[in-house]
Amino acid sequence: MEEKKEKNGFEPRLVGILCRWCSYQGADLAGTSRLKYEPNMTVLRVPCSARMSPLFLMKGLTSDIDGILFSGCHPGDCHYISGNMNARRRFVIFKKLLEFAGMEPERIQMSWCSASEDKKWADIVDSVTIEVKKTGPNNKFK
């Protein structure tokens, strides 16, 4: 009972690693359109989703972050031709490994969000926040 209470009041720390051409601009547009979403996610800007290194996932998950979202351009739209496809492959493999190590899949997510998808961005943040809230605090790698 007590554990459930803690989960309900739990505010997860989330980080979003966004490519600067599509997802970051989509997140900006959500602001310009004054959409509202959960305030748990702090955004970190990188040039391309391919900049995503498994290192970041490990660092994040071992330093008190409850969930990480990677977001890039839609397939075919990558500013750097094919970076998002490389990112997707790395992500899928590494996520499987983390799951194998016991990490809840909800904590590690990836999405495609274009510069015009403000509503989609707001929805992504909300859904990731809700899912991680349900999963509870991250203490697997402590």
């Binding site: 990188v46 040039p47 900049r51 290192l55 500013h79 750097y80 970076g83 990112a87």
Partner: peptide, 26 residues
């Protein structure tokens, strides 16, 4: 073009991206 794809692929962290280094992001 500075996308950083090579950095994530490097197994020994020998490549880095100026302005978005591993150190900075970590």
């Amino acid at each position: 073009h500075g996308c950083g794809n090579c950095i994530s692929a490097c197994p020994v962290s020998a490549v880095d991206l100026k302005g978005y280094t591993n150190e900075q992001i970590l």
